[in-house]
Design a protein around this nucleic acid. Structure first.
Ligand SMILES: [Mn+2]
Ligand SMILES: [Mn+2]
Ligand SMILES: [Zn+2]
Ligand SMILES: [Zn+2]
Lengths: 145, 145
DNA sequence: AGGATAGATGATAATCATTATTGTTAAATA
DNA sequence: TATTTAACAATAATGATTATCATCTATCCT
């Protein structure tokens, strides 16, 4: 998927719901669409500040939150309180997380729909989305031992 | 698994590492071992206070944190900041979470080892544990519509 | 183009779950 | 029972997120 295409998708979703397109929002969208590294709010803030020095951290929080409601960004929260975001691929998908260097990877797709189906049957829940993370050591961190 | 057995398992792990067994800790262990509802720290605190009114919230935090390090409790953190704990079954296992009433269910086992294996092969990560949650509406909340 | 207006922004205060601190208490051991 | 030291209770500090509000501006209308 082309990052520019992603920006246009997000823009369409915002316009569709009559949200205004501001320079700050556009900068945040571009950062999210381009980054494959699952940035935190503060990471996004640092990038956007380079282009719009007056941008407020609160604006980043609110824009990310808005995109989350529109299902245009995937939120990954961790028990240590750190939240990271995938704006490049906002659909639920599994992640591999290094417990040492905190790198978050997007592995090639594996199908979880069967699991979701099984879960639905066994619990009676109507499932809307899911979250699947694997924690371990990335190849680089395995070397350094 | 019998809750009493779980308490004894946890006690063994604590003694093994020369941690002291205090009335407060024992009360926290019992609460965790017996509860199948995935309580929060404050839920545990409220239950323990009924038996030991002077118990401090900080003590509950420290004991839960200690049990987490000993792999005797499973921590479930959510982006809204709420953390919940499974002391009845501390091994990683999937959960079904109701987005309306927040109920957390333990479905009958499905095997994730194959997925873990696939993930390991595709990313090169050495996987230690995982987290799998399904979000949706529980049967009760589906009715109320 | 100019003006009206409701939504967005920036700065900062408030919130709240968790963690750190510190003097006191009591579990474990001999 | 005395000694040692981890654990305790009470409370302050932390820090990410959220709320507030005065100001600004994207969008629409004339
Ligand atoms: Mn991703
Ligand atoms: Mn569970
Ligand atoms: Zn790593
Ligand atoms: Zn429910």
């Amino acid at each position: 998927m082309d990052p520019q295409k992603r920006v246009e998708e997000m823009l369409y979703k915002l316009k569709e719901r009559d949200f205004r397109i501001t320079p700050q929002r556009l900068a945040i969208l571009k950062t999210l669409a381009a980054s494959k590294g699952h940035p935190s709010v503060d990471d996004i803030y640092q990038e956007v500040k380079a282009l719009f020095p007056t941008t407020s951290l609160a604006t980043v929080y609110k824009t990310v939150s808005l995109l989350k409601e529109l299902n245009e960004v995937l939120e990954l929260g961790f028990p240590d309180g750190s939240n990271h975001y995938d704006g490049y691929n906002p659909a639920p998908h599994p992640h591999a997380i290094c417990i040492k260097c905190k790198k978050i990877m997007d592995p090639e797709l594996m199908n979880i729909d069967e699991l979701s189906e099984e879960m639905s049957k066994k619990t009676g829940y109507k499932i809307f989305h899911h979250r699947l993370d694997f924690f371990g050591l990335c190849p680089a961190c395995q070397q350094k031992n």
